[in-house]
Amino acid sequence: MVYKTITAFFKENYHKSPLLIKAPGRINLIGEHTDYNQGLVLPASIEKGIYFAVTDNHDNVIRIETFLTQPEKIEFTLKGEHKAFTSFWGNYFKAIIEILVAKNYPIKAMNCVFGGDIPIGSGLSSSAALCCGFIYALSKISGNEIPREEIALIAQEAEHKIGLNCGLMDQYAVLFGKKGNAFFLDCKDLSHRYIPINLEGYSWVLVNSNIKHNLVVDSEYNKRRISCENIVRNVKKLRPEVNSLRDVTISDLEKITEKSNETDLKRAKYIIDENNRVLRMMNALTNGDEQEVGRILNEGHWAMSTQYEITTNEIDALVTIGENLEGIIGSRMMGGGFGGCTINLIETAKLDSSISSLLKAYQNQTGIAAEYYHLAIDDGVKVIEY
């Protein structure tokens, strides 16, 4: 187990028994790119995660190291100043500390060793787990427990500082997940509730295409966001009360057709339809209707492919292969896009044969060896007893 390795490393190097915190990755059952449009999402936290072993120290520094990505140790002062570092994760921690200092949160010195088993770049939101887990750990050590809603906002602000204009879905899923349940979040007012996943005899499996995605400044992700904002701006001229695509209807789109870019219109329609798919998925999960769940997954995927244009040929191949295999009820790309994983609902009795056939056909078509992960729905950020 990863957390045992991290704990043992901490004890050996810092000679103390640490507080151990797990920040899970998340899947998203449906509702892609709706969060920054104040729409609806249906994620769930999973058993894979990032673990933080932490204690306080008397050295007046925040000392962080990992040995599971590229080995590196970084030290920050309590004001966020730091020695030079090269690892990508250092930028997240730097942003978080600077935000906490600016908000006048009391921060204590801390030793931290972290690592995990979330595949980087696979759409499981490793960055949200990294940020939320670190903020939670720092608040625990500092004796000033920050409310989870506030942790979500700080984590989002940190991602914005390094160039990714994400919504709040990932952070809320990581912080508020509940074992055995999907997590419905209305991104307009942040109201949320748990949706039981009543699908006995069926398993969730993630298939990693091994096409890595990297969502950075000026990325295609941000271009989609601009398209959505363009449509809202045009609709607002007719209906001043409109503030996001959540307030826009298909009828509104028809009225601005001549004044809007065709690509922007297509992307806006995707968002409106995707919100409806979230509502349909909630009912299907609650009613245990696996066939409807499968239909929604596939429908959502091809909408991402043809309307929002965020899939890849390889991801499309995975879904197409699955549509023609017995036992795979439905699948779709999951995450920001341009690589990563598909999430698949598979009949448990046919799981091994279905996955074997899928991976073989994918490698034959693309020359790429995909990987797969069984998914278990788990709790949000929490302290782990060991």
Score class of each variant (00 low, 15 high):
A102H: 14
Y194F: 14
K179A: 07
E145T: 09
R224A: 13
C187L: 05
Y92I: 08
H192L: 06
I107R: 03
E157T: 12
G133V: 08
N181R: 13
I162P: 15
K223H: 12
C132K: 05
C187M: 07
Y136F: 15
W204K: 10
V205W: 06
I211Y: 07
A102M: 05
D117Y: 09
K179H: 10
A182F: 09
I195H: 12
D189L: 03
K212W: 02
I151Y: 02
E98M: 07
V217N: 12
E229Q: 14
S127N: 06
C228E: 13
I99F: 00
N181H: 09
I141M: 05
A95W: 01
V113Q: 01
S139N: 03
N214W: 00
G116M: 03
A109S: 13
I120R: 03
D186T: 13
L206M: 15
D117R: 01
E98A: 11
I120C: 00
L175K: 06
P119I: 04
D189H: 07
S126Y: 02
N198M: 05
N210P: 00
I99P: 02
L130G: 02
E145P: 03
F176T: 05
F184H: 11
L138T: 09
L199E: 09
L190S: 04
Y172D: 01
Y105Q: 10
I96H: 08
A152T: 13
S125C: 01
M110I: 12
N198R: 11
F114T: 12
F114S: 10
N165A: 14
A137D: 04
I211L: 00
N222E: 13
C187P: 15
H213C: 01
Y202P: 15
A173T: 03
F114C: 01
E145S: 05
I211W: 02
N222W: 00
S122P: 14
N214T: 04
A128Q: 08
K140R: 15
C112Q: 07
R193I: 04
Y172S: 04
K188P: 06
V207Q: 04
N104W: 06
S142E: 09
R193D: 06
N198T: 11
A158H: 10
I107E: 11
A128K: 00
N165E: 14
D186L: 09
K179N: 14
E157D: 07
G167C: 01
N165I: 05
K178G: 01
N181Y: 14
V216M: 14
I120P: 02
A102E: 13
C166P: 05
S122M: 06
K188V: 07
A173D: 06
N181K: 15
G115H: 08
A158F: 05
I141C: 14
G177Q: 00
L185H: 12
V216R: 09
D186S: 12
E150T: 15
I118V: 13
A95Y: 04
E157M: 07
G167I: 00
G121M: 03
D117S: 07
K140G: 06
C131L: 04
N181T: 08
K223I: 11
R225W: 13
P106R: 08
L100C: 08
F93P: 11
V174Y: 09
R225F: 14
Y136V: 01
I120V: 10
K178S: 03
P119V: 07
I135G: 01
V216G: 06
E98Y: 04
C166I: 15
Y105H: 15
N210D: 06
R193L: 04
C166W: 11
S203Y: 09
Y202D: 08
N198P: 11
K188L: 08
G116I: 13
